[in-house]
């Protein structure tokens, strides 16, 4: 890691240069309530001071909602061609918990099977991180994702009159050297940065009692009344999955052309909350009840990947809480598991 500082007066020129030199994706205000990561053509469109989360999360750049995987032609023999599309682009202004979300997906899409479609996009995505103000539903601090230690090329932290820059890759260093007038970080800058981080961590209002959740969850697992109560108003609408920066499940659809000679296979974001998710050939459904599905989602988020990678599959961004019309709140539910088992 290299540490530099950029004078605030030079920030706009740096960003402008990146916008003109690269395909530049950044947060832009979409309507009165949310921001989205979209291509930015002019610095005036960029709004890094987004109060609320972006919907959808930045994972859409690596794992798009709809993505063609292969095309095929049926002739004397079947010819299959993979479709792997990726372009070099900058993702600017993505915050620490979303970077940690991408880091989680990196593990998922490279463990057991290398997902070329994901990896080719990830390798070409230049990530420039920046902190954003946590919302009331954000519990990243409890999940340990309020700080990104890797998964980015450059991370800008806004101090009083300068930006503290962490450079994590050679590619990031080249960009900084070419486009930004920086100087080495001094001991005073480091102190300023530490002070900033201490204050930043105080901005997270929501906290969860995640300690020992791994064991507590087993104790509550068979308590049907508890899960029924939590899932009472669940629509099984899948919104929580589709706004989640770590959800990776997908369904593959086969589209054959009407000429019956060619076709393609496309993957699209799936959701474990819908009843079809647990439906298998023969008509059996492993999880016909909504409370079962909700319990399974919590298990996947908070336990399964502790076993697998030693990581939670939840970065605490609070998107699912904001997206849930039935007001199901994963943070409150984590805390009520604790309460329930300690009675």
């Amino acid at each position: 890691m290299l540490y530099k500082v950029l004078d605030k007066s030079a920030y706009r020129d740096f960003v402008k240069a990146l916008i003109s030199e690269y395909e530049f994706i950044g947060p832009k205000k979409k309507d009165r309530s949310v921001h989205d990561f979209v291509p930015i053509k002019d610095i005036s469109e960029l709004d890094t001071n987004y109060m609320r989360v972006t919907i959808p999360p930045a994972k859409k750049l690596l794992f798009p909602p709809n993505e063609k995987l292969v095309t095929y032609e049926v002739g004397r023999k079947i010819e299959v061609r993979p479709v792997i599309e990726s372009d070099e682009e900058i993702l600017f202004g993505v915050n620490a918990w979303d970077i940690n979300g991408m880091n989680f997906l990196d593990r998922v899409f490279t463990t057991d099977f290398i997902d070329e479609n994901y990896i080719s996009k990830r390798e070409k995505l230049i990530v420039i991180g920046m902190d954003s103000k946590p919302t009331e539903t954000n519990f990243s601090l409890s999940m340990g994702t309020e700080y990104a230690k890797d998964g980015f090329d450059i991370y800008l932290t806004e101090l009083k009159d300068k930006y503290f820059i962490r450079i994590a890759t050679a590619r990031g260093n080249e960009i900084v050297e070419r486009y930004a007038k920086v100087s080495d970080a001094t001991a005073e800058d480091f102190r300023g940065y530490d002070k900033y981080m201490n204050n930043y961590r105080k901005k997270f209002k929501m906290s969860v009692n995640i300690k020992n959740f791994y064991d507590d969850f087993e104790l509550i697992y068979d308590n049907e009344d508890f899960w029924k109560k939590i899932a009472k108003n669940c629509y099984s609408c899948g919104s929580c999955n589709l706004v989640c920066p770590t959800c990776f499940c997908f369904n593959i659809k086969d589209d054959i052309e009407l000429n019956l000679k060619s076709g393609s296979k496309t993957r699209e974001w799936d959701s474990c909350m819908i009843s079809e998710y647990g439906l298998v050939a023969g008509g059996h459904n492993f999880r016909p009840d909504k409370e079962n599905r909700l319990k399974q989602r919590y298990r996947c988020k908070l336990k399964t990947f502790i076993d697998k990678f030693g990581k939670y599959a939840c970065v605490g961004c609070g998107r699912c809480i904001e997206a849930c019309l039935a007001k199901i709140n994963i943070a409150e539910d984590i805390n009520s598991v604790k309460k329930e088992v300690s009675v």
Partner: peptide, 23 residues
């Protein structure tokens, strides 16, 4: 044929829409 039996929310979120309830 694959005919969806899930709510519109799924497609709506795939399309990156802001929930109209918020509006």
């Amino acid at each position: 044929p694959e005919i969806p039996n899930y709510p519109v929310c799924i497609e709506c979120k795939r399309n990156g829409n802001t929930c109209v309830y918020e509006l």
